[in-house]
């Protein structure tokens, strides 16, 4: 068969190419550009090869931030995913309660991130904040601006408050897609509540949970605004996560070279983890089918 070549079709791809170029490729290439050069001003710049990368990867403050980041992200996932599933299971399935709980759950998701930080910053204060004051009344010495542990817990609770709803809504959507016949059949088969969860609800939620875990991983791994507003990364460096470390390096100290190098490493970490997670989950699904 003779293949008809018509290269005019490529012109149709151009608009998309321009949009992607401006929104993603050019900015990313700028970062690559900075990461391999030492730039003083437009006329004075030196190619430095992998020096910035080596410097950044050997930086012990960055190692600390990375470890904090990993612990933080894992805590977020281990709390929000099970909690989200549990809440989704208890939500009403019909009647006015459905819309009421949907609205309530969506509220935290609609609040701008820096406002979330501000809310908790005020809420947690021991002198004027309702939360902080009550905790101190209970005899617990709580002060998130001085005690690293308190700061950690506050940032975590804030994230749980802000984002668990997302998991709840995703799981709820998954649960709603299960036809009634499944529950009826399970009843007739004499299945226990646990068996219904294990063999019907959990498998049906699997695909939304994959999305949920990916979203929560990416977002929490890149978290910036809320801890920045709430604790400013303190006390000391206790709640300084990767994004904040990076911002300090780039905007605070104006070390653009190392910051660019680190940005790329950061990007690759997220890409790699997501890819590995997605591939493993999807392959597990396929293996089971065979």
């Amino acid at each position: 068969m003779n293949k008809i070549t018509n290269n005019k079709a490529w012109f149709l791809v151009l608009p998309v190419f321009f949009i992607v170029a401006i929104s993603a490729i050019i900015p990313l290439m700028t970062v690559v550009n900075y990461s391999v050069q030492d730039i003083f001003d437009p006329q004075t710049r030196f190619f430095v090869g992998t020096e910035w990368f080596e410097q950044v990867l050997g930086d012990s403050r960055l190692h600390d931030a990375l470890i904090r980041q990993i612990i933080y992200t894992l805590s977020v996932l281990f709390i929000e995913i099970p909690l989200g599933i549990a809440v989704a299971l208890t939500l009403p399935r019909k009647g006015w309660g459905v819309s009421a709980s949907m609205v309530l759950l969506a509220l935290p998701l609609l609040i701008p991130w820096n406002v979330v930080g501000t809310i908790w910053q005020i809420f947690g204060r021991a002198d004027i904040g309702l939360g902080g004051y009550v905790i101190n009344l209970l005899g617990i010495d709580y002060n998130y601006s001085q005690n690293p542990m308190d700061a950690w817990v506050t940032v975590l609770v804030m994230d749980v408050w802000h984002w668990t709803s997302l998991i709840v809504l995703l799981c709820y959507a998954g649960l709603r897609s299960i036809p009634d016949a499944y529950y009826q059949a399970a009843k007739i088969d004499g299945a226990s509540r646990w068996a219904v969860f294990r063999f019907i609800q959990l498998p049906k939620m699997q695909s939304v949970l994959v999305i949920g875990v990916l979203l929560r991983f990416m977002d929490s791994f890149m978290i910036y605004t809320e801890p920045f507003v709430l604790t400013g990364g303190g006390p000391g460096n206790a709640t300084t996560f990767l994004s904040q470390f990076l911002t300090r390096m780039a905007v605070g100290q104006f070390d653009l070279g190392p910051a660019a190098a680190f940005s790329l490493v950061y990007f690759l970490i997220i890409l790699l983890v997501c890819w590995v997670f997605y591939t493993v989950v999807m392959n597990a699904g396929k293996r089971e089918e065979q």
């Binding site: 036809p179 016949a181 499944y182 009826q184 059949a185 007739i188 088969d189 004499g190 299945a191 226990s192 068996a195 063999f199 019907i200 498998p203 049906k204 089971e288």
Partner: peptide
């Protein structure tokens, strides 16, 4: 009871599916 559309437990084998009402 058997329903109009297939109700099976996805993660189980065919054997486990058939055994489910008995094991419960």
């Amino acid at each position: 009871q058997v329903f109009q559309f297939p109700v099976i437990y996805d993660t189980m084998t065919v054997y486990e599916n058939l055994a489910f009402p008995l094991r419960n």
